[in-house]
Design a protein around this nucleic acid. Sequence first.
RNA 1: GGGCCUGUAGCUCAGCUAGGUAGAGCACCUGGCUUUUAACCAGGUGGCCAGGGGUUCGAAUCCCCUCAGGCCCGCCA
Length: 510
Amino acid sequence: MHWADVVAEKLMQRGDEHVLATAITPSGPIHVGNLREVMTTEAIYRALKDRGAKAKLIFIADTFDPLRKVYPFLDKSYEKYVGMPLSSIPCPCGEHENYAEHFLQPFIEAMDELGIKPEIYKDHELYAQGFYKNAIKTALDNADKIRNILNEISGRNLPEGWMPFNVLCENCGRLTGEIKEYEYPSIKYECKCGWKNSVNINECMGKMPWRVEWPARWSLFGVTFEAFGKDHASPGGSWDTGKVIAKEVFNYEPPMPFVYEFIHLKGRGAMHGSTGLAIAASEVVKMVPAEVLRFLFMKYEPSRHIEFDASFGLLDLVDEYDEYERVYFGMQEARAGMKDVRRVYELSQPYGTKAKMPLQIPYRHLAVVAQIAKNFDEVIEIIQRRTELQKFDEERLRERYEKIKYWLKNYAPDAIKFEVLEKFEGEMDKRSIEFLERLKNKLETIEWDAEKIHSAIHETIKEYGISAKEGFEAIYKIIIGKKRGPRAGYFLQSLGKEFVLSRIHEVIQK
RNA sequence: GGGCCUGUAGCUCAGCUAGGUAGAGCACCUGGCUUUUAACCAGGUGGCCAGGGGUUCGAAUCCCCUCAGGCCCGCCA
């Protein structure tokens, strides 16, 4: 049974109404790893619905968290915003409402493309609406209890009089106001900037610290399931303290926890280099077809870490997806090593499973065609020389074409990249030229078919007595300026007879 | 110091919660009428299942220990 179904069945034993929560802090580019939280939870959400449960998927953006520091990708001028809520910091590009929105929006768009449509909440709005009002009172009334729990379980040493609420200072706009006196509903606070004031807790802005806010959310939203990374799951971490605070302070039975592993990046050294920057989710969505990206997450148990290979491995991943698809539609037998084929395939679909199998174009081939063609119409033209395209296949092809173009431009290894030369400008030795001349004569007479072209090349090589290596090199050199290239027969076929012949002609004339 | 995950063919992994002496894909090699070249097909090479100990008639599969790799916590979230 697929892991999503295993979890769903466990949840069903608890009841048939569920709220599944996800949350992400938009303090920087939201990366692929964060996608796992959302995708894992959404898969379980689907599995619950398949069992007739009443389920709700929520996404809370931690927009009210303070900016911790000036991250490497930020301008130094951001120094002055450290400590302020992400929602009140200006957008780095100037096009979004605020800093949080700048990072959040592309992620939400990515989720949408992946078919993930949770109810979205923004934390700063929740606070502004007074959503947490009662929880804040409960937390403050139980400040000592919470302090003890945190000290005991997380091994901290919070001082006497510590209060689980940071006031948003009216003077400096930072979440650094410390409550010094509390007598509901009035508080006296002091900020690090030196500001002091007495205010009504119900009218002042501020935020509970994460370890308290998390259990508060569970009780307010009625959360019954939450997946989180192992950072939260460490002993003494926020899950350990949260579940106790939920029970003892908010009188709420904590949700079923589910720990997932992180994603590692493979190949592209620069991506996870000194800066520690990962690939943004919005970026991955541009280079991997949506269903294939989902597939990556559905295929592995969430407890396993995933090696994400944005280089050659991406081609294998797409091929593997296509293979699952063929098995799903009964075109091929499942082979050893495939797991839960039907379920994995279903869960990989962003917007439902098609009634009919989409026509598949091998991804590696598309990688070649996409580099020959100048635009999508040409891609269709080249591919149609061999296959008929149906309407919905064209949609898939278009998506894949766009993704592979993006991939080729930004992530593909050089070995697979080439560019058809506008004009051949290099030098050719005499032997090669003679060989090409003979080849041209032969090509002129044959039907323009990949295998026939392939044969013609080999025949010419043999007749002329040149080595195969030299022969092929000559061909690649005049077309793409490299010693190696895509399989010659198919490649020349895709380029078209006219182009190939005139290119050779051009070289011979020189 | 504490904890999690992983360690099976060159690479990515399946098999491990029904214990019976290893699988897949890719790569590689060999064929595919005369043809090494990055969409094809058919075969094939390749692993003492990280190491050690234990349980068992029998373990990659269960238990214990060790080693290695990755990551998290010990600031904040």
